[in-house]
Design a protein around this nucleic acid. Structure first.
Length: 485
RNA sequence: GGCGGCAUAGCCAAGUGGUAAGGCAGAGGUCUGCAAAACCUCCAUCCUCCGGUUCAAAUCCGGAUGCCGCCUCCA
Protein backbone atom coordinates (compact mmCIF):
# COMPACT_ATOMS: atom_id res chain seq x y z
CA UNK A 1 0.00 0.00 0.00
CA UNK A 2 0.97 3.61 -0.40
CA UNK A 3 1.29 5.65 2.77
CA UNK A 4 1.94 9.33 3.22
CA UNK A 5 5.19 9.84 5.05
CA UNK A 6 5.45 13.11 6.94
CA UNK A 7 9.21 12.64 6.70
CA UNK A 8 9.74 14.00 3.22
CA UNK A 9 6.04 14.76 2.75
CA UNK A 10 5.44 12.18 0.06
CA UNK A 11 3.33 9.12 -0.45
CA UNK A 12 5.56 6.07 -0.52
CA UNK A 13 5.03 2.40 -1.09
CA UNK A 14 4.93 0.80 2.31
CA UNK A 15 6.94 -2.36 2.85
CA UNK A 16 8.18 -3.78 6.14
CA UNK A 17 11.94 -3.94 6.62
CA UNK A 18 11.96 -7.50 7.85
CA UNK A 19 9.81 -9.97 5.96
CA UNK A 20 6.27 -9.95 7.15
CA UNK A 21 6.79 -8.24 10.48
CA UNK A 22 5.62 -4.68 10.98
CA UNK A 23 6.54 -2.62 14.02
CA UNK A 24 4.26 0.29 14.78
CA UNK A 25 4.35 2.77 17.62
CA UNK A 26 1.65 5.35 18.25
CA UNK A 27 1.75 8.01 20.92
CA UNK A 28 -1.09 7.38 23.31
CA UNK A 29 -2.82 9.61 25.77
CA UNK A 30 -1.73 11.53 28.80
CA UNK A 31 -4.14 10.15 31.36
CA UNK A 32 -5.48 13.22 33.15
CA UNK A 33 -9.01 13.59 31.79
CA UNK A 34 -11.72 11.92 29.74
CA UNK A 35 -10.86 11.39 26.09
CA UNK A 36 -12.25 13.86 23.59
CA UNK A 37 -13.24 13.40 20.00
CA UNK A 38 -9.72 14.21 18.85
CA UNK A 39 -8.38 11.26 20.80
CA UNK A 40 -11.14 9.21 19.23
CA UNK A 41 -10.03 10.17 15.76
CA UNK A 42 -6.42 9.31 16.34
CA UNK A 43 -7.34 6.02 17.98
CA UNK A 44 -9.73 5.02 15.22
CA UNK A 45 -7.39 6.00 12.40
CA UNK A 46 -4.52 3.94 13.73
CA UNK A 47 -6.85 1.14 14.69
CA UNK A 48 -7.97 0.91 11.07
CA UNK A 49 -4.36 1.05 9.89
CA UNK A 50 -3.41 -1.84 12.18
CA UNK A 51 -6.47 -3.83 11.16
CA UNK A 52 -5.75 -3.25 7.50
CA UNK A 53 -2.09 -4.23 7.77
CA UNK A 54 -3.15 -7.44 9.53
CA UNK A 55 -5.83 -8.00 6.92
CA UNK A 56 -3.09 -7.85 4.33
CA UNK A 57 -1.27 -10.58 6.18
CA UNK A 58 1.38 -8.60 8.01
CA UNK A 59 2.40 -9.66 11.49
CA UNK A 60 1.96 -6.33 13.24
CA UNK A 61 3.41 -5.49 16.63
CA UNK A 62 1.50 -2.46 17.79
CA UNK A 63 2.72 -0.46 20.78
CA UNK A 64 0.72 2.42 22.20
CA UNK A 65 1.89 4.04 25.42
CA UNK A 66 0.20 5.72 28.34
CA UNK A 67 1.76 8.81 29.82
CA UNK A 68 1.04 8.38 33.50
CA UNK A 69 3.36 10.94 35.02
CA UNK A 70 3.26 14.47 33.70
CA UNK A 71 2.64 18.10 34.69
CA UNK A 72 -1.02 17.97 33.77
CA UNK A 73 -1.64 14.79 35.74
CA UNK A 74 0.11 16.24 38.77
CA UNK A 75 -1.90 19.45 38.47
CA UNK A 76 -5.15 17.53 38.26
CA UNK A 77 -4.18 15.36 41.21
CA UNK A 78 -3.40 18.40 43.31
CA UNK A 79 -6.75 19.96 42.41
CA UNK A 80 -8.55 16.84 43.53
CA UNK A 81 -6.32 16.18 46.50
CA UNK A 82 -5.29 12.68 45.44
CA UNK A 83 -1.99 11.31 44.22
CA UNK A 84 -1.14 11.47 40.55
CA UNK A 85 -1.00 7.72 40.13
CA UNK A 86 -4.66 7.46 41.12
CA UNK A 87 -5.59 10.04 38.52
CA UNK A 88 -3.62 8.25 35.83
CA UNK A 89 -5.12 4.88 36.67
CA UNK A 90 -8.63 6.25 36.72
CA UNK A 91 -8.35 7.86 33.31
CA UNK A 92 -6.58 4.88 31.78
CA UNK A 93 -9.63 2.90 32.87
CA UNK A 94 -11.93 5.50 31.32
CA UNK A 95 -9.88 5.40 28.14
CA UNK A 96 -10.60 1.69 27.81
CA UNK A 97 -14.31 2.27 28.36
CA UNK A 98 -14.40 4.74 25.48
CA UNK A 99 -12.15 2.73 23.20
CA UNK A 100 -14.09 -0.46 23.76
CA UNK A 101 -17.27 1.39 22.86
CA UNK A 102 -15.65 2.64 19.67
CA UNK A 103 -14.43 -0.86 18.82
CA UNK A 104 -10.77 0.18 19.01
CA UNK A 105 -8.60 -2.88 19.57
CA UNK A 106 -6.06 -3.04 22.36
CA UNK A 107 -2.46 -2.55 21.36
CA UNK A 108 -0.12 -5.53 21.71
CA UNK A 109 1.96 -3.64 24.24
CA UNK A 110 0.64 -0.71 26.25
CA UNK A 111 3.61 0.49 28.26
CA UNK A 112 3.31 3.02 31.02
CA UNK A 113 5.89 5.67 31.62
CA UNK A 114 6.21 4.94 35.34
CA UNK A 115 7.10 1.32 34.63
CA UNK A 116 10.05 2.25 32.40
CA UNK A 117 11.95 4.73 34.51
CA UNK A 118 15.17 2.72 34.47
CA UNK A 119 15.15 2.53 30.68
CA UNK A 120 14.71 6.28 30.50
CA UNK A 121 17.52 6.90 32.92
CA UNK A 122 19.78 4.63 30.89
CA UNK A 123 18.87 6.45 27.68
CA UNK A 124 19.57 9.80 29.32
CA UNK A 125 22.92 8.60 30.62
CA UNK A 126 23.86 7.41 27.18
CA UNK A 127 23.05 10.81 25.75
CA UNK A 128 25.17 12.53 28.38
CA UNK A 129 28.08 10.18 27.64
CA UNK A 130 27.83 11.01 23.95
CA UNK A 131 27.76 14.70 24.82
CA UNK A 132 24.23 15.16 23.46
CA UNK A 133 22.91 16.07 26.89
CA UNK A 134 24.00 17.69 30.13
CA UNK A 135 22.83 17.84 33.72
CA UNK A 136 22.16 21.22 35.30
CA UNK A 137 23.26 22.11 38.83
CA UNK A 138 19.82 21.50 40.29
CA UNK A 139 19.38 18.09 38.69
CA UNK A 140 17.57 18.71 35.39
CA UNK A 141 18.97 17.04 32.31
CA UNK A 142 18.65 18.76 28.93
CA UNK A 143 19.16 17.58 25.40
CA UNK A 144 21.60 19.70 23.40
CA UNK A 145 19.58 20.42 20.32
CA UNK A 146 22.50 21.94 18.46
CA UNK A 147 24.47 18.73 18.92
CA UNK A 148 22.06 16.85 16.65
CA UNK A 149 22.65 17.99 13.10
CA UNK A 150 19.41 16.58 11.71
CA UNK A 151 17.21 18.43 14.19
CA UNK A 152 14.14 19.72 12.35
CA UNK A 153 14.14 17.17 9.54
CA UNK A 154 10.65 15.89 10.28
CA UNK A 155 8.90 19.20 10.72
CA UNK A 156 10.89 21.03 8.06
CA UNK A 157 12.36 23.64 10.35
CA UNK A 158 15.91 24.72 10.69
CA UNK A 159 17.61 25.68 13.90
CA UNK A 160 17.67 29.38 13.14
CA UNK A 161 13.90 29.45 12.50
CA UNK A 162 13.36 27.95 15.88
CA UNK A 163 15.48 30.36 17.84
CA UNK A 164 12.90 33.16 17.83
CA UNK A 165 10.17 30.88 19.15
CA UNK A 166 12.30 29.28 21.81
CA UNK A 167 12.08 30.51 25.33
CA UNK A 168 13.33 29.59 28.72
CA UNK A 169 10.75 29.16 31.47
CA UNK A 170 11.56 30.53 34.89
CA UNK A 171 13.50 27.97 36.86
CA UNK A 172 14.94 26.20 33.84
CA UNK A 173 18.69 25.96 33.54
CA UNK A 174 19.18 25.52 29.83
CA UNK A 175 22.49 26.42 28.24
CA UNK A 176 20.61 27.12 25.02
CA UNK A 177 16.93 28.12 24.76
CA UNK A 178 16.42 25.41 22.12
CA UNK A 179 17.33 22.60 24.50
CA UNK A 180 14.56 20.49 25.96
CA UNK A 181 14.27 18.53 29.19
CA UNK A 182 15.03 14.83 29.30
CA UNK A 183 14.78 14.66 33.05
CA UNK A 184 13.21 17.06 35.50
CA UNK A 185 14.45 17.48 39.06
CA UNK A 186 11.72 16.79 41.60
CA UNK A 187 9.76 19.63 43.06
CA UNK A 188 8.17 19.26 46.49
CA UNK A 189 5.07 17.08 46.43
CA UNK A 190 5.72 15.64 42.99
CA UNK A 191 6.17 11.96 42.23
CA UNK A 192 9.86 11.26 41.76
CA UNK A 193 12.42 8.54 41.23
CA UNK A 194 16.04 8.22 42.22
CA UNK A 195 18.50 8.92 39.42
CA UNK A 196 22.19 9.76 38.98
CA UNK A 197 21.06 13.42 39.03
CA UNK A 198 19.02 13.14 42.19
CA UNK A 199 15.30 12.70 42.64
CA UNK A 200 13.31 13.53 39.56
CA UNK A 201 11.02 12.38 36.80
CA UNK A 202 11.31 11.87 33.06
CA UNK A 203 10.41 14.49 30.48
CA UNK A 204 7.54 13.73 28.17
CA UNK A 205 9.52 13.29 24.96
CA UNK A 206 11.83 10.77 26.54
CA UNK A 207 9.21 8.11 27.17
CA UNK A 208 8.40 7.29 23.60
CA UNK A 209 12.07 6.97 22.69
CA UNK A 210 12.75 4.66 25.61
CA UNK A 211 9.65 2.51 25.32
CA UNK A 212 9.57 2.08 21.56
CA UNK A 213 13.16 0.90 21.56
CA UNK A 214 12.52 -1.49 24.40
CA UNK A 215 9.74 -3.34 22.61
CA UNK A 216 10.78 -3.06 18.98
CA UNK A 217 13.96 -2.88 16.97
CA UNK A 218 14.94 0.42 15.40
CA UNK A 219 14.13 1.70 12.92
CA UNK A 220 10.43 1.29 13.55
CA UNK A 221 8.40 0.58 10.46
CA UNK A 222 5.73 3.10 11.40
CA UNK A 223 5.49 5.79 14.02
CA UNK A 224 2.15 7.56 14.34
CA UNK A 225 0.35 10.24 16.24
CA UNK A 226 -1.69 13.39 15.90
CA UNK A 227 -0.50 16.13 13.60
CA UNK A 228 0.34 18.41 16.49
CA UNK A 229 2.84 15.93 17.82
CA UNK A 230 5.09 16.24 14.79
CA UNK A 231 6.70 19.25 16.40
CA UNK A 232 8.20 19.27 18.87
CA UNK A 233 7.36 15.84 20.30
CA UNK A 234 8.31 13.62 17.38
CA UNK A 235 11.18 15.84 16.38
CA UNK A 236 12.56 15.43 19.89
CA UNK A 237 12.02 11.68 19.86
CA UNK A 238 14.05 11.49 16.68
CA UNK A 239 16.81 13.56 18.20
CA UNK A 240 16.95 11.44 21.36
CA UNK A 241 16.78 8.06 19.68
CA UNK A 242 19.01 8.75 16.74
CA UNK A 243 21.61 10.59 18.79
CA UNK A 244 21.69 7.76 21.33
CA UNK A 245 21.68 4.79 18.98
CA UNK A 246 23.09 6.10 15.74
CA UNK A 247 20.21 4.33 14.02
CA UNK A 248 17.33 5.83 12.09
CA UNK A 249 14.32 6.04 14.40
CA UNK A 250 11.39 5.29 12.12
CA UNK A 251 10.81 4.62 8.42
CA UNK A 252 7.30 6.02 8.18
CA UNK A 253 5.81 8.93 10.08
CA UNK A 254 2.04 8.95 9.92
CA UNK A 255 0.04 11.84 11.34
CA UNK A 256 -3.71 12.16 11.55
CA UNK A 257 -5.44 15.51 10.99
CA UNK A 258 -7.26 17.43 13.66
CA UNK A 259 -10.85 17.52 14.70
CA UNK A 260 -12.15 21.04 14.50
CA UNK A 261 -15.28 22.83 15.59
CA UNK A 262 -16.50 25.43 13.11
CA UNK A 263 -13.17 25.19 11.30
CA UNK A 264 -11.26 25.98 14.46
CA UNK A 265 -9.18 23.80 16.62
CA UNK A 266 -11.07 22.19 19.43
CA UNK A 267 -9.62 23.21 22.75
CA UNK A 268 -10.61 23.71 26.31
CA UNK A 269 -9.63 27.35 26.25
CA UNK A 270 -11.99 28.06 23.34
CA UNK A 271 -14.75 26.20 25.13
CA UNK A 272 -15.59 24.16 22.02
CA UNK A 273 -14.76 20.85 23.51
CA UNK A 274 -16.55 17.51 23.26
CA UNK A 275 -15.61 14.33 25.04
CA UNK A 276 -16.36 10.95 23.57
CA UNK A 277 -18.94 10.54 26.32
CA UNK A 278 -20.72 13.77 25.40
CA UNK A 279 -21.26 12.28 21.99
CA UNK A 280 -22.09 8.73 23.01
CA UNK A 281 -24.78 10.12 25.30
CA UNK A 282 -26.68 11.05 22.13
CA UNK A 283 -25.34 8.85 19.34
CA UNK A 284 -24.35 5.24 18.90
CA UNK A 285 -20.64 4.46 18.87
CA UNK A 286 -20.80 3.17 15.30
CA UNK A 287 -22.20 6.47 14.14
CA UNK A 288 -19.18 8.25 15.58
CA UNK A 289 -16.75 5.72 14.19
CA UNK A 290 -18.34 5.94 10.75
CA UNK A 291 -18.22 9.73 10.94
CA UNK A 292 -14.51 9.62 11.72
CA UNK A 293 -13.87 7.31 8.78
CA UNK A 294 -15.98 9.28 6.34
CA UNK A 295 -13.16 11.73 5.78
CA UNK A 296 -9.56 11.10 4.80
CA UNK A 297 -7.42 10.68 7.90
CA UNK A 298 -5.11 13.55 7.07
CA UNK A 299 -7.82 16.12 6.39
CA UNK A 300 -9.04 18.38 9.11
CA UNK A 301 -12.43 17.15 10.20
CA UNK A 302 -15.12 19.55 11.28
CA UNK A 303 -17.24 18.10 14.03
CA UNK A 304 -20.85 19.07 14.62
CA UNK A 305 -23.92 17.26 15.81
CA UNK A 306 -25.58 18.05 12.47
CA UNK A 307 -22.74 16.32 10.64
CA UNK A 308 -23.08 13.39 13.02
CA UNK A 309 -26.78 13.13 12.19
CA UNK A 310 -25.86 12.95 8.53
CA UNK A 311 -23.46 10.13 9.28
CA UNK A 312 -26.17 8.42 11.26
CA UNK A 313 -28.39 8.41 8.18
CA UNK A 314 -25.59 6.89 6.16
CA UNK A 315 -24.97 4.13 8.68
CA UNK A 316 -28.68 3.45 8.92
CA UNK A 317 -29.00 3.12 5.19
CA UNK A 318 -26.22 0.54 5.00
CA UNK A 319 -27.63 -1.52 7.86
CA UNK A 320 -31.18 -1.27 6.52
CA UNK A 321 -29.95 -2.65 3.22
CA UNK A 322 -28.11 -5.46 5.00
CA UNK A 323 -31.25 -6.33 6.91
CA UNK A 324 -33.14 -6.62 3.64
CA UNK A 325 -30.40 -8.70 2.10
CA UNK A 326 -30.43 -11.07 5.05
CA UNK A 327 -34.21 -11.37 4.83
CA UNK A 328 -34.04 -12.20 1.12
CA UNK A 329 -31.27 -14.76 1.68
CA UNK A 330 -33.49 -16.60 4.15
CA UNK A 331 -35.67 -17.85 1.26
CA UNK A 332 -35.42 -21.52 0.32
CA UNK A 333 -36.73 -21.78 -3.25
CA UNK A 334 -34.69 -20.28 -6.05
CA UNK A 335 -35.31 -19.86 -9.76
CA UNK A 336 -32.88 -19.98 -12.66
CA UNK A 337 -33.14 -16.38 -13.87
CA UNK A 338 -29.63 -15.32 -14.95
CA UNK A 339 -27.84 -12.26 -13.64
CA UNK A 340 -27.21 -9.52 -16.19
CA UNK A 341 -23.51 -9.13 -16.87
CA UNK A 342 -23.54 -5.38 -16.29
CA UNK A 343 -24.57 -5.88 -12.67
CA UNK A 344 -21.75 -8.34 -12.14
CA UNK A 345 -19.31 -5.93 -13.75
CA UNK A 346 -20.53 -3.07 -11.61
CA UNK A 347 -20.09 -5.06 -8.43
CA UNK A 348 -16.60 -6.10 -9.44
CA UNK A 349 -15.83 -2.43 -10.00
CA UNK A 350 -16.96 -1.48 -6.52
CA UNK A 351 -15.05 -4.34 -4.96
CA UNK A 352 -11.89 -3.34 -6.73
CA UNK A 353 -12.43 0.33 -6.00
CA UNK A 354 -12.85 -0.41 -2.35
CA UNK A 355 -9.56 -2.28 -2.16
CA UNK A 356 -7.73 0.32 -4.18
CA UNK A 357 -8.96 3.09 -1.90
CA UNK A 358 -7.42 1.35 1.10
CA UNK A 359 -4.21 0.77 -0.80
CA UNK A 360 -3.98 4.47 -1.57
CA UNK A 361 -3.03 5.97 1.77
CA UNK A 362 -5.89 4.41 3.70
CA UNK A 363 -8.57 6.37 1.88
CA UNK A 364 -11.56 5.27 3.91
CA UNK A 365 -13.73 8.09 2.56
CA UNK A 366 -13.36 6.83 -1.00
CA UNK A 367 -13.81 3.24 0.15
CA UNK A 368 -17.11 4.08 1.80
CA UNK A 369 -18.26 5.60 -1.48
CA UNK A 370 -17.79 2.20 -3.13
CA UNK A 371 -19.61 0.58 -0.26
CA UNK A 372 -22.68 2.65 -1.05
CA UNK A 373 -22.37 1.50 -4.63
CA UNK A 374 -22.54 -2.12 -3.48
CA UNK A 375 -25.53 -1.37 -1.30
CA UNK A 376 -27.33 0.35 -4.16
CA UNK A 377 -26.66 -2.67 -6.30
CA UNK A 378 -28.09 -4.95 -3.65
CA UNK A 379 -31.18 -2.76 -3.58
CA UNK A 380 -31.49 -3.09 -7.34
CA UNK A 381 -31.46 -6.87 -7.13
CA UNK A 382 -33.90 -6.86 -4.24
CA UNK A 383 -36.22 -4.57 -6.18
CA UNK A 384 -36.25 -6.88 -9.17
CA UNK A 385 -38.89 -9.54 -8.54
CA UNK A 386 -37.23 -12.11 -10.77
CA UNK A 387 -33.63 -11.58 -9.68
CA UNK A 388 -34.59 -11.49 -6.04
CA UNK A 389 -35.83 -15.07 -6.24
CA UNK A 390 -33.11 -16.35 -8.52
CA UNK A 391 -30.06 -18.39 -7.62
CA UNK A 392 -27.98 -15.79 -9.42
CA UNK A 393 -29.54 -13.06 -7.29
CA UNK A 394 -28.94 -15.04 -4.15
CA UNK A 395 -25.31 -15.55 -5.10
CA UNK A 396 -24.82 -11.87 -5.77
CA UNK A 397 -26.42 -10.81 -2.50
CA UNK A 398 -24.37 -13.39 -0.63
CA UNK A 399 -21.24 -12.06 -2.31
CA UNK A 400 -22.03 -8.52 -1.22
CA UNK A 401 -22.81 -9.74 2.28
CA UNK A 402 -19.58 -11.73 2.50
CA UNK A 403 -17.58 -8.79 1.19
CA UNK A 404 -19.05 -6.54 3.82
CA UNK A 405 -18.41 -9.06 6.55
CA UNK A 406 -14.78 -9.18 5.45
CA UNK A 407 -14.35 -5.41 5.32
CA UNK A 408 -16.29 -4.71 8.47
CA UNK A 409 -13.40 -6.36 10.30
CA UNK A 410 -11.11 -3.70 8.89
CA UNK A 411 -13.42 -0.70 9.20
CA UNK A 412 -14.69 -1.75 12.60
CA UNK A 413 -18.21 -0.80 11.53
CA UNK A 414 -21.06 -2.74 9.90
CA UNK A 415 -20.18 -5.90 11.78
CA UNK A 416 -23.29 -6.06 13.97
CA UNK A 417 -26.49 -7.98 13.38
CA UNK A 418 -28.48 -5.53 11.21
CA UNK A 419 -31.80 -5.95 13.00
CA UNK A 420 -30.18 -5.49 16.38
CA UNK A 421 -28.30 -2.43 15.26
CA UNK A 422 -31.42 -0.89 13.74
CA UNK A 423 -33.35 -1.51 16.93
CA UNK A 424 -30.59 0.15 18.97
CA UNK A 425 -30.49 3.05 16.56
CA UNK A 426 -34.23 3.53 16.73
CA UNK A 427 -34.12 3.56 20.52
CA UNK A 428 -31.22 5.98 20.45
CA UNK A 429 -32.98 8.37 18.09
CA UNK A 430 -36.25 8.09 19.98
CA UNK A 431 -34.52 8.96 23.21
CA UNK A 432 -32.84 11.94 21.55
CA UNK A 433 -36.18 13.16 20.22
CA UNK A 434 -37.85 12.60 23.58
CA UNK A 435 -40.44 10.24 22.16
CA UNK A 436 -42.86 8.50 24.51
CA UNK A 437 -42.94 4.95 23.18
CA UNK A 438 -46.05 3.96 25.13
CA UNK A 439 -48.07 6.82 23.67
CA UNK A 440 -46.82 5.95 20.19
CA UNK A 441 -47.89 2.35 20.61
CA UNK A 442 -51.35 3.45 21.75
CA UNK A 443 -51.79 5.67 18.71
CA UNK A 444 -50.55 2.92 16.41
CA UNK A 445 -53.09 0.57 17.91
CA UNK A 446 -55.89 3.06 17.21
CA UNK A 447 -54.62 3.51 13.70
CA UNK A 448 -54.58 -0.23 13.12
CA UNK A 449 -58.26 -0.38 14.10
CA UNK A 450 -59.07 2.49 11.77
CA UNK A 451 -57.27 0.80 8.90
CA UNK A 452 -59.06 -2.49 9.52
CA UNK A 453 -62.29 -0.53 9.06
CA UNK A 454 -60.86 1.18 5.95
CA UNK A 455 -61.31 4.48 7.77
CA UNK A 456 -58.38 6.08 5.98
CA UNK A 457 -59.15 9.63 7.00
CA UNK A 458 -58.99 8.58 10.65
CA UNK A 459 -55.83 6.60 9.91
CA UNK A 460 -54.21 9.60 8.25
CA UNK A 461 -55.26 11.89 11.08
CA UNK A 462 -53.47 9.61 13.53
CA UNK A 463 -50.47 9.59 11.25
CA UNK A 464 -50.43 13.39 11.38
CA UNK A 465 -50.71 13.25 15.13
CA UNK A 466 -47.73 10.89 15.27
CA UNK A 467 -45.79 13.12 12.91
CA UNK A 468 -46.30 15.96 15.35
CA UNK A 469 -44.57 13.74 17.90
CA UNK A 470 -41.73 13.30 15.40
CA UNK A 471 -42.81 9.76 14.65
CA UNK A 472 -43.11 8.45 11.15
CA UNK A 473 -45.38 5.49 10.42
CA UNK A 474 -44.60 2.96 7.74
CA UNK A 475 -47.03 0.37 6.47
CA UNK A 476 -45.08 -2.71 5.62
CA UNK A 477 -46.21 -6.19 4.56
CA UNK A 478 -45.56 -7.18 8.18
CA UNK A 479 -47.82 -4.43 9.51
CA UNK A 480 -47.16 -1.00 10.93
CA UNK A 481 -43.68 0.09 11.83
CA UNK A 482 -42.45 3.40 13.05
CA UNK A 483 -39.29 5.40 13.12
CA UNK A 484 -38.14 8.78 14.29
CA UNK A 485 -38.89 11.47 11.77
C1' G B 1 7.98 36.88 12.12
C1' G B 2 9.33 31.41 10.71
C1' C B 3 7.32 26.54 8.97
C1' G B 4 3.16 23.96 6.90
C1' G B 5 -1.83 22.78 5.20
C1' C B 6 -6.45 23.80 2.86
C1' A B 7 -9.90 26.33 -0.92
C1' U B 8 -14.45 20.98 -5.43
C1' A B 9 -22.48 21.64 -6.24
C1' G B 10 -27.30 24.11 -1.06
C1' C B 11 -24.24 21.25 2.83
C1' C B 12 -20.37 17.22 3.77
C1' A B 13 -16.77 15.02 0.70
C1' A B 14 -13.24 11.69 -2.83
C1' G B 15 -10.28 12.80 -6.65
C1' U B 16 -1.91 14.83 -7.97
C1' G B 17 -2.02 15.29 -15.92
C1' G B 18 -6.73 12.57 -19.80
C1' U B 19 -11.78 15.36 -19.38
C1' A B 20 -15.71 15.87 -11.99
C1' A B 21 -16.79 9.12 -6.81
C1' G B 22 -20.03 8.99 -2.84
C1' G B 23 -23.31 10.84 1.15
C1' C B 24 -27.08 14.41 2.95
C1' A B 25 -30.76 17.76 1.15
C1' G B 26 -33.95 18.69 -3.32
C1' A B 27 -37.07 17.48 -8.10
C1' G B 28 -39.65 13.77 -11.18
C1' G B 29 -41.01 8.51 -11.64
C1' U B 30 -42.06 3.06 -10.02
C1' C B 31 -44.45 0.93 -5.69
C1' U B 32 -48.62 2.42 -2.10
C1' G B 33 -55.71 3.60 -0.35
C1' C B 34 -52.40 7.89 0.56
C1' A B 35 -47.61 7.80 2.52
C1' A B 36 -42.80 5.81 4.19
C1' A B 37 -38.74 2.59 2.85
C1' A B 38 -36.39 0.77 -1.48
C1' C B 39 -35.22 1.30 -6.61
C1' C B 40 -34.83 4.36 -11.35
C1' U B 41 -33.89 9.31 -13.46
C1' C B 42 -32.26 14.37 -12.74
C1' C B 43 -29.25 17.80 -9.82
C1' A B 44 -20.96 21.20 -10.70
C1' U B 45 -19.40 22.15 -19.06
C1' C B 46 -16.95 22.87 -14.15
C1' C B 47 -13.31 22.55 -9.33
C1' U B 48 -11.49 30.70 -5.06
C1' C B 49 -9.19 34.29 -8.65
C1' C B 50 -5.22 35.77 -12.37
C1' G B 51 -1.27 34.20 -15.37
C1' G B 52 1.93 30.05 -17.26
C1' U B 53 3.61 24.86 -18.84
C1' U B 54 1.15 20.90 -21.90
C1' C B 55 -2.02 17.87 -27.42
C1' A B 56 -4.53 17.69 -22.57
C1' A B 57 -4.85 20.61 -15.62
C1' A B 58 -9.47 20.63 -10.34
C1' U B 59 -4.83 18.05 -10.62
C1' C B 60 2.00 20.81 -12.38
C1' C B 61 4.49 26.02 -11.96
C1' G B 62 4.19 31.44 -10.55
C1' G B 63 1.23 35.19 -8.29
C1' A B 64 -3.23 37.01 -5.58
C1' U B 65 -7.20 36.42 -2.04
C1' G B 66 -9.44 33.79 1.99
C1' C B 67 -9.42 30.15 5.97
C1' C B 68 -6.74 26.95 9.27
C1' G B 69 -2.69 24.52 11.95
C1' C B 70 2.33 24.30 14.19
C1' C B 71 6.34 27.32 16.34
C1' U B 72 3.91 26.77 24.29
C1' C B 73 0.74 21.49 26.95
C1' C B 74 -2.01 19.08 23.15
C1' A B 75 -4.59 13.42 19.26
Amino acid sequence: MRLYNTMGRVKQEFAPQHGNAVSMYVCGITAYDYCHIGHARSAVVFDVLVRYLRFKGYDVTFVRNFTDVDDKIIKRANELGVNSQEIAEKFIGEFYVDMDALNVLRADVEPKCTEHISEMIALTQGLIEKDHAYASPSGDVYFKVRSFADYGKLSGRNIEDLVSGARVEPGEEKRDPLDFALWKAAKPGEPSWQSPWGLGRPGWHLECSAMSEKYMALPLDIHGGGQDLAFPHHENEIAQSEAATGKEFAKFWVHNGFVQINSEKMSKSLGNFFTIRDILAKFLPETLRYFLLSMHYRSPLDFSFDALEESEKGVRRIYAALAQVDAALAATKWSKTPMPQDILDELAGYEQGFSEAFEDDLNTAAALGHLFGMVRLAGRVLDDKALRKAEAGRDLLARIRAGLAKWSGVLGVFGLEPELFLADLKACRAARAGIDAARVEALLSDRLDARKNKDFSRSDAIRDELAALRVEVKDTPQGQAWDVL
